[in-house]
Design a protein around this nucleic acid. Structure first.
Lengths: 215, 215
DNA sequence: TGGCATATCCGCCTTCAGGCTGAGTCACCG
DNA sequence: CGGTGACTCAGCCTGAAGGCGGATATGCCA
């Protein structure tokens, strides 16, 4: 007994959404339960409907990658299928690491897309053939280079950021590094300024996003 | 000016080599210039003939990965197409990083294999569909299992955590979710309690550690 | 029907984070 | 020798964060 597969579409272009909808409505087992036009809306919609699959455009207000990440956290049941016009390996890798299951280019035909969605609902990944090649490139290069902004940090600032990214308070960082808390606050302020973020949580997120915690 | 594509086959099973040879000989544009049964022989053969493509078994004496690496170094012109019976993500990733271009499972049919070889000669990668899935898994490195503690969070709490993990302040989370800041603070407190952490930065780190990538 | 979990909101209070300013030491460099 | 940058520390002040208690409304389940 196969229930319908419930799908949320997230794309900032109405035309694209309508096109996808028209594509998918020819398949009786696929039900579109909602459409969003930005990352925030996509997360909200997924949290609300808990769809089986979210079809997310890589390029959208708020960011397709951020949308993927928030959807995966806020709505673990929902599998994310990425939709993209461009074959940017870095972006695709980032999206996969953010929790995207499959990745399709926008030139797929209706049946292939439907098939991808069905497989996604079962947790099976599908890679668009041309995406596969890009992914191989990215893998070969061994992950993306870190942010150049991180390079502007001094040694001490990097240490402080690393401990911030572990969730330590100023006091604990001070103890860990054997310096005063005031000094830590100075470093923290400098780090926040250089990274152009407004608080330690954003700095920690920055560190994780830029990969300083992954190699 | 389509010259024949020159191919070297490296597999330790005579039967397999003969099978592949029989497969490919039905295609006039594919020429098998040599067969090797181990890594050393494959490298020697490639260095000698500088073939366009080397079809390398992942499992062979001397190691398919080592064979790939040495071939790529000793004979840069030669593209390596991996052939494997097993879908071991680690092995495949390692082989790709060693320089393999494409990866096929041994259940491909003759035409698909021929097509892969032609593309490889042009430098285009092809991933066997089932291999793609494994590769995604490896990339994701354990995002699926998720922490069991995350399961104890309510829907709303997961949404709040997702936004905390993006670095948003209580005020911004409130705006994003369309609820009051006081309510957000309540949710945040509950999340901190359930995750057994003492501040939002630690919660964000927790989300990143358990929800997205790496160990 | 009475618990129980969830989600929403309010107020009070304490602690901490982070901005701003200033300042001392040290090492390196032109 | 003076300048520059990194590292250290200090005081002051504002605002955000988070704990604690209380409150209301929903829906689910025994």
């Amino acid at each position: 007994m196969n229930a319908q597969i419930r799908i949320v579409i997230a794309d900032d272009h109405v035309l694209v959404r309508q096109g996808i909808r028209a594509f998918l409505e020819t398949h009786a087992d696929l039900a579109i339960v909602g459409e969003a036009e930005d990352a925030a809306g996509a997360m909200k919609l997924c949290a609300e409907h808990q769809p089986d699959v979210a079809l997310v455009d890589l390029v959208m207000p708020g960011g397709g990658i951020e949308a993927t990440r928030t959807i995966r956290v806020a709505s673990p049941h929902t599998q994310v299928v990425l939709l993209t016009s461009f074959e940017d390996a870095q972006q695709i890798v980032a999206a996969v690491q953010a929790g995207a299951l499959s990745c399709m280019l926008k030139d797929v035909d209706a049946d292939a897309l439907a098939d991808t969605l069905r497989k996604a609902a079962r947790g099976e990944a599908v890679l668009h053939p041309r995406v596969a090649g890009k992914l191989m490139d990215a893998l070969r290069r061994g992950s993306e280079p870190g942010s150049e902004v991180l390079e502007t940090l001094s040694q001490r600032e990097r240490e402080v950021l690393a401990l911030m990214a572990e969730g330590l308070s100023n006091q604990h960082i001070a103890e860990r590094l054997g310096i005063g808390e005031k000094t830590v606050k100075t470093h923290v302020s400098n780090v926040l300024g250089k990274l152009n973020v407004s608080d330690r949580t954003q700095a920690a997120v920055y560190a994780w996003k830029s990969g300083m915690k992954q190699r």
